[in-house]
Protein backbone atom coordinates (compact mmCIF):
# COMPACT_ATOMS: atom_id res chain seq x y z
CA UNK A 1 0.00 0.00 0.00
CA UNK A 2 1.11 3.50 -0.75
CA UNK A 3 0.22 4.80 2.72
CA UNK A 4 2.21 2.19 4.60
CA UNK A 5 5.13 2.88 2.27
CA UNK A 6 5.09 6.54 3.30
CA UNK A 7 4.70 5.61 6.95
CA UNK A 8 7.68 3.29 6.75
CA UNK A 9 9.69 6.04 5.13
CA UNK A 10 8.64 8.49 7.86
CA UNK A 11 9.56 6.01 10.59
CA UNK A 12 12.94 5.54 8.99
CA UNK A 13 13.42 9.30 8.80
CA UNK A 14 12.51 9.77 12.47
CA UNK A 15 14.94 7.05 13.52
CA UNK A 16 17.62 8.69 11.43
CA UNK A 17 16.95 12.05 13.06
CA UNK A 18 17.14 10.54 16.55
CA UNK A 19 20.46 8.90 15.70
CA UNK A 20 21.78 12.17 14.29
CA UNK A 21 20.60 13.97 17.42
CA UNK A 22 22.48 11.52 19.64
CA UNK A 23 25.58 11.96 17.55
CA UNK A 24 25.69 15.73 18.13
CA UNK A 25 24.10 15.44 21.61
CA UNK A 26 21.16 17.55 20.50
CA UNK A 27 18.41 18.20 22.99
CA UNK A 28 15.17 18.55 21.04
CA UNK A 29 13.53 20.25 24.03
CA UNK A 30 16.14 23.01 23.82
CA UNK A 31 15.37 23.38 20.13
CA UNK A 32 11.62 23.60 20.65
CA UNK A 33 11.77 26.23 23.37
CA UNK A 34 13.42 28.35 20.75
CA UNK A 35 16.45 30.47 20.25
CA UNK A 36 17.64 28.45 17.25
CA UNK A 37 16.09 29.80 14.08
CA UNK A 38 16.31 27.93 10.78
CA UNK A 39 18.07 29.80 8.02
CA UNK A 40 17.65 29.58 4.25
CA UNK A 41 20.96 27.70 4.06
CA UNK A 42 21.02 23.95 4.67
CA UNK A 43 21.94 22.99 8.28
CA UNK A 44 22.52 26.60 9.30
CA UNK A 45 20.67 28.39 12.10
CA UNK A 46 20.61 31.79 13.74
CA UNK A 47 21.19 31.60 17.48
CA UNK A 48 19.17 34.23 19.35
CA UNK A 49 20.59 35.17 22.75
CA UNK A 50 18.44 36.26 25.67
CA UNK A 51 18.93 40.00 26.25
CA UNK A 52 16.03 41.35 28.35
CA UNK A 53 15.70 45.11 27.97
CA UNK A 54 18.64 45.05 25.55
CA UNK A 55 20.99 45.15 28.52
CA UNK A 56 24.09 43.01 28.05
CA UNK A 57 27.11 42.92 30.35
CA UNK A 58 30.62 43.19 28.93
CA UNK A 59 31.24 39.57 29.99
CA UNK A 60 28.29 38.37 27.96
CA UNK A 61 29.28 40.52 25.00
CA UNK A 62 32.67 38.82 24.98
CA UNK A 63 31.06 35.37 24.98
CA UNK A 64 28.69 36.43 22.18
CA UNK A 65 31.70 37.62 20.16
CA UNK A 66 33.52 34.35 20.86
CA UNK A 67 30.52 32.29 19.72
CA UNK A 68 30.26 34.39 16.56
CA UNK A 69 33.94 33.92 15.77
CA UNK A 70 34.15 30.25 16.59
CA UNK A 71 30.80 28.95 15.30
CA UNK A 72 29.40 31.70 13.06
CA UNK A 73 30.92 34.11 10.58
CA UNK A 74 32.39 36.57 13.03
CA UNK A 75 29.38 38.88 13.11
CA UNK A 76 26.16 39.33 15.06
CA UNK A 77 22.79 40.79 14.15
CA UNK A 78 20.85 42.92 16.63
CA UNK A 79 17.20 41.89 16.49
CA UNK A 80 14.39 44.41 16.41
CA UNK A 81 13.50 43.29 19.94
CA UNK A 82 16.95 44.05 21.36
CA UNK A 83 18.46 40.58 21.32
CA UNK A 84 21.87 39.68 19.93
CA UNK A 85 21.67 36.99 17.26
CA UNK A 86 24.56 34.93 15.88
CA UNK A 87 23.81 33.89 12.29
CA UNK A 88 25.31 31.04 10.19
CA UNK A 89 25.70 28.51 12.99
CA UNK A 90 25.61 24.79 12.18
CA UNK A 91 23.28 22.68 14.34
CA UNK A 92 26.30 20.55 15.22
CA UNK A 93 27.51 23.31 17.52
CA UNK A 94 24.28 23.82 19.48
CA UNK A 95 25.44 21.84 22.50
CA UNK A 96 28.81 23.59 22.63
CA UNK A 97 27.06 26.97 22.47
CA UNK A 98 24.53 26.01 25.14
CA UNK A 99 27.44 24.93 27.34
CA UNK A 100 29.35 28.19 26.78
CA UNK A 101 26.22 30.13 27.72
CA UNK A 102 25.49 28.04 30.81
CA UNK A 103 29.02 28.68 32.04
CA UNK A 104 28.22 32.38 32.47
CA UNK A 105 24.59 31.85 33.53
CA UNK A 106 23.21 32.93 30.15
CA UNK A 107 20.82 31.27 27.70
CA UNK A 108 19.21 31.48 24.28
CA UNK A 109 15.94 33.38 23.78
CA UNK A 110 12.45 31.91 23.37
CA UNK A 111 10.46 31.20 20.22
CA UNK A 112 7.06 29.66 19.56
CA UNK A 113 3.85 30.06 21.59
CA UNK A 114 5.59 31.44 24.67
CA UNK A 115 6.30 34.62 26.56
CA UNK A 116 9.17 36.24 24.69
CA UNK A 117 12.10 38.20 26.09
CA UNK A 118 10.66 41.52 27.36
CA UNK A 119 12.05 44.72 25.86
CA UNK A 120 12.60 48.11 27.51
CA UNK A 121 14.08 51.57 27.01
CA UNK A 122 16.60 53.12 29.41
CA UNK A 123 13.75 54.42 31.58
CA UNK A 124 14.08 56.97 34.36
CA UNK A 125 17.37 55.47 35.59
CA UNK A 126 19.29 57.78 33.26
CA UNK A 127 16.94 59.07 30.54
CA UNK A 128 15.70 62.58 31.42
CA UNK A 129 12.29 61.88 29.83
CA UNK A 130 11.78 58.69 31.82
CA UNK A 131 8.99 58.48 34.39
CA UNK A 132 9.22 54.83 35.41
CA UNK A 133 12.10 52.41 36.03
CA UNK A 134 11.66 50.21 32.95
CA UNK A 135 14.86 48.20 33.27
CA UNK A 136 14.39 46.78 36.75
CA UNK A 137 10.78 45.72 36.12
CA UNK A 138 11.75 44.32 32.72
CA UNK A 139 14.51 42.20 34.27
CA UNK A 140 12.12 40.84 36.91
CA UNK A 141 9.42 40.09 34.31
CA UNK A 142 12.04 38.20 32.29
CA UNK A 143 13.11 36.26 35.38
CA UNK A 144 9.55 35.32 36.27
CA UNK A 145 7.78 34.75 32.95
CA UNK A 146 10.33 34.18 30.19
CA UNK A 147 9.37 31.14 28.12
CA UNK A 148 5.99 30.57 29.82
CA UNK A 149 3.80 28.64 27.34
CA UNK A 150 0.63 30.50 26.35
CA UNK A 151 -1.16 27.60 24.71
CA UNK A 152 -1.89 29.71 21.64
CA UNK A 153 0.72 32.01 20.17
CA UNK A 154 3.67 34.23 21.02
CA UNK A 155 3.29 36.81 23.79
CA UNK A 156 5.31 40.01 23.68
CA UNK A 157 5.80 42.46 26.54
CA UNK A 158 7.58 45.81 26.45
CA UNK A 159 8.26 48.79 28.68
CA UNK A 160 8.50 52.47 27.70
CA UNK A 161 9.48 54.95 30.38
CA UNK A 162 7.35 57.81 29.02
CA UNK A 163 4.68 58.60 26.39
CA UNK A 164 7.30 59.08 23.66
CA UNK A 165 6.93 55.31 23.69
CA UNK A 166 10.19 54.29 22.01
CA UNK A 167 9.35 50.69 22.84
CA UNK A 168 6.09 50.70 20.88
CA UNK A 169 3.79 49.48 23.62
CA UNK A 170 0.90 49.77 21.17
CA UNK A 171 2.31 46.83 19.20
CA UNK A 172 2.67 44.45 22.16
CA UNK A 173 0.39 41.81 23.63
CA UNK A 174 1.03 43.69 26.87
CA UNK A 175 2.73 47.09 26.83
CA UNK A 176 3.59 49.20 29.86
CA UNK A 177 4.24 52.93 29.46
CA UNK A 178 5.22 55.40 32.16
CA UNK A 179 2.59 58.06 32.87
CA UNK A 180 2.28 60.96 35.33
CA UNK A 181 -0.72 63.07 36.30
CA UNK A 182 0.18 66.70 37.03
CA UNK A 183 -1.63 68.91 39.54
CA UNK A 184 -1.04 72.59 40.32
CA UNK A 185 -0.28 73.93 43.81
CA UNK A 186 -1.77 77.36 43.14
CA UNK A 187 -0.12 79.14 46.08
CA UNK A 188 3.35 78.37 44.74
CA UNK A 189 2.73 79.27 41.08
CA UNK A 190 4.37 82.49 39.85
CA UNK A 191 2.47 82.43 36.55
CA UNK A 192 5.68 82.20 34.49
CA UNK A 193 3.97 80.09 31.78
CA UNK A 194 6.95 77.75 31.35
CA UNK A 195 4.65 74.74 31.77
CA UNK A 196 2.30 76.06 29.08
CA UNK A 197 5.24 76.57 26.73
CA UNK A 198 6.70 73.14 27.50
CA UNK A 199 3.48 71.21 26.78
CA UNK A 200 3.66 69.78 23.28
CA UNK A 201 0.02 68.67 23.39
CA UNK A 202 -1.41 72.11 24.18
CA UNK A 203 -3.06 70.64 27.27
CA UNK A 204 -2.28 73.73 29.39
CA UNK A 205 -3.55 77.28 28.96
CA UNK A 206 -3.33 80.39 31.15
CA UNK A 207 -6.50 81.54 32.88
CA UNK A 208 -6.40 84.46 35.33
CA UNK A 209 -2.62 84.15 35.60
CA UNK A 210 -2.61 80.41 36.35
CA UNK A 211 -2.15 77.34 34.13
CA UNK A 212 -5.28 75.23 33.64
CA UNK A 213 -5.06 71.64 32.40
CA UNK A 214 -7.28 70.00 29.82
CA UNK A 215 -7.26 66.33 30.93
CA UNK A 216 -8.56 65.19 27.54
CA UNK A 217 -5.40 66.47 25.87
CA UNK A 218 -2.86 65.63 28.60
CA UNK A 219 -0.95 62.44 27.79
CA UNK A 220 0.88 62.25 31.10
CA UNK A 221 4.43 62.96 29.88
CA UNK A 222 5.30 65.00 32.98
CA UNK A 223 7.18 67.72 31.06
CA UNK A 224 5.26 70.47 32.90
CA UNK A 225 6.29 68.97 36.24
CA UNK A 226 9.93 68.74 35.20
CA UNK A 227 10.10 72.30 33.89
CA UNK A 228 8.34 74.13 36.74
CA UNK A 229 11.01 76.35 38.37
CA UNK A 230 9.20 76.63 41.70
CA UNK A 231 7.78 73.10 42.00
CA UNK A 232 4.23 74.39 41.79
CA UNK A 233 3.32 71.77 39.20
CA UNK A 234 3.66 68.45 40.99
CA UNK A 235 2.60 64.89 40.30
CA UNK A 236 -0.68 63.65 41.73
CA UNK A 237 0.05 60.11 40.59
CA UNK A 238 2.61 58.18 38.61
CA UNK A 239 2.45 54.64 37.23
CA UNK A 240 2.10 52.42 34.19
CA UNK A 241 -0.38 53.03 31.42
CA UNK A 242 -1.23 49.52 30.25
CA UNK A 243 -1.92 48.60 26.63
CA UNK A 244 -3.13 45.14 25.66
CA UNK A 245 -3.81 43.13 22.51
CA UNK A 246 -1.38 44.81 20.12
CA UNK A 247 0.82 43.16 17.52
CA UNK A 248 2.87 43.91 14.44
CA UNK A 249 3.51 41.52 11.58
CA UNK A 250 1.46 40.88 8.46
CA UNK A 251 -1.74 41.98 10.12
CA UNK A 252 -0.93 44.60 12.74
CA UNK A 253 -3.31 45.44 15.57
CA UNK A 254 -3.08 48.66 17.57
CA UNK A 255 -3.41 47.81 21.27
CA UNK A 256 -6.17 49.05 23.59
CA UNK A 257 -5.46 51.24 26.60
CA UNK A 258 -6.94 49.12 29.38
CA UNK A 259 -5.63 50.61 32.65
CA UNK A 260 -3.59 53.51 34.00
CA UNK A 261 -1.39 54.39 36.98
CA UNK A 262 -0.61 50.73 37.64
CA UNK A 263 2.14 50.16 40.23
CA UNK A 264 5.27 48.05 39.70
CA UNK A 265 3.87 45.38 42.03
CA UNK A 266 0.61 45.12 40.07
CA UNK A 267 2.52 44.61 36.80
CA UNK A 268 3.31 41.04 37.84
CA UNK A 269 -0.23 40.07 38.87
CA UNK A 270 -1.56 41.74 35.72
CA UNK A 271 0.75 39.65 33.51
CA UNK A 272 -0.20 36.45 35.36
CA UNK A 273 -3.94 37.14 35.14
CA UNK A 274 -3.66 38.14 31.47
CA UNK A 275 -1.78 34.95 30.55
CA UNK A 276 -4.39 32.93 32.43
CA UNK A 277 -7.22 34.76 30.65
CA UNK A 278 -5.54 34.29 27.25
CA UNK A 279 -5.02 30.59 27.93
CA UNK A 280 -8.68 29.98 28.70
CA UNK A 281 -10.25 32.45 26.24
CA UNK A 282 -7.92 32.26 23.23
CA UNK A 283 -8.66 29.93 20.33
CA UNK A 284 -6.10 28.07 18.23
CA UNK A 285 -3.11 30.13 17.21
CA UNK A 286 -4.72 33.54 17.62
CA UNK A 287 -2.92 36.42 19.35
CA UNK A 288 -4.44 38.19 22.35
CA UNK A 289 -5.67 41.04 20.11
CA UNK A 290 -7.65 38.59 17.99
CA UNK A 291 -9.25 37.18 21.15
CA UNK A 292 -10.30 40.74 22.05
CA UNK A 293 -11.64 41.05 18.51
CA UNK A 294 -13.90 38.03 19.00
CA UNK A 295 -14.99 38.54 22.59
CA UNK A 296 -14.61 42.28 23.08
CA UNK A 297 -11.98 44.02 25.18
CA UNK A 298 -14.68 44.75 27.80
CA UNK A 299 -14.77 41.08 28.76
CA UNK A 300 -11.03 41.23 29.46
CA UNK A 301 -11.41 44.43 31.49
CA UNK A 302 -14.29 42.87 33.48
CA UNK A 303 -12.40 39.67 34.17
CA UNK A 304 -8.81 40.86 34.64
CA UNK A 305 -8.48 44.62 35.21
CA UNK A 306 -11.44 45.04 37.56
CA UNK A 307 -10.77 42.02 39.82
CA UNK A 308 -7.22 43.30 40.33
CA UNK A 309 -8.66 46.61 41.54
CA UNK A 310 -6.79 48.60 38.89
CA UNK A 311 -7.95 51.85 37.37
CA UNK A 312 -9.60 50.61 34.17
CA UNK A 313 -9.80 52.58 30.95
CA UNK A 314 -13.23 51.69 29.58
CA UNK A 315 -14.45 54.70 27.70
CA UNK A 316 -13.32 54.85 24.03
CA UNK A 317 -13.19 58.65 24.49
CA UNK A 318 -10.45 58.20 27.10
CA UNK A 319 -8.42 56.26 24.55
CA UNK A 320 -8.86 58.77 21.76
CA UNK A 321 -6.22 61.16 23.13
CA UNK A 322 -3.51 58.50 22.66
CA UNK A 323 -4.46 57.97 19.04
CA UNK A 324 -2.95 59.93 16.18
CA UNK A 325 -4.29 60.41 12.70
CA UNK A 326 -3.08 58.13 9.95
CA UNK A 327 -4.07 55.35 7.65
CA UNK A 328 -6.15 53.09 9.88
CA UNK A 329 -8.45 51.90 7.08
CA UNK A 330 -11.49 53.38 8.78
Amino acid sequence: MVVSGIEAELAGLKAGLKKEARRVKLNFDDLKSGGFIKQTQKDLFTVRLRCPGGRVTADRLRVAAEIAERYGRGEVHVSVRQSIEVPYVSYEHFEAIAEALRAIDWSVASCGPRVRVPTACAGCAYNPNGLMDTQSVCAEVDRRYFGTPTGHHKFKISFSGCPIDCFRTREMDLGFQGSAEPVLVEDLCTGCELCVRSCEDFALRMEDGLPVRDADRCNGCGDCIKVCPVDAMVEARRGWLVRAGGKHGKHPIFAYEVANYVSNEDVYSLIEMTLEWYRSNGEGRERLGATFGRLGVEKYIDEVIDPLGLEATRNPEDRRKYKSEGNTYG
Binding site: T190, L194, S198, K226, V227, P229
Partner: peptide, 19 residues
Amino acid sequence: IRNVPRSVKAEGHRILTVR
Protein backbone atom coordinates in the same frame (compact mmCIF):
# COMPACT_ATOMS: atom_id res chain seq x y z
CA ILE B 1 12.41 77.34 26.22
CA ARG B 2 11.09 73.78 26.50
CA ASN B 3 14.48 72.23 27.21
CA VAL B 4 16.93 74.66 28.81
CA PRO B 5 14.98 75.61 31.97
CA ARG B 6 14.26 71.96 32.67
CA SER B 7 17.92 71.00 32.34
CA VAL B 8 19.03 73.96 34.46
CA LYS B 9 16.57 72.90 37.16
CA ALA B 10 17.79 69.28 36.94
CA GLU B 11 21.35 70.55 37.59
CA GLY B 12 20.12 71.95 40.88
CA HIS B 13 20.09 75.68 40.09
CA ARG B 14 17.15 77.95 40.91
CA ILE B 15 15.19 79.74 38.22
CA LEU B 16 14.13 83.00 39.84
CA THR B 17 12.04 84.60 37.12
CA VAL B 18 10.84 83.94 33.61
CA ARG B 19 9.70 86.87 31.50
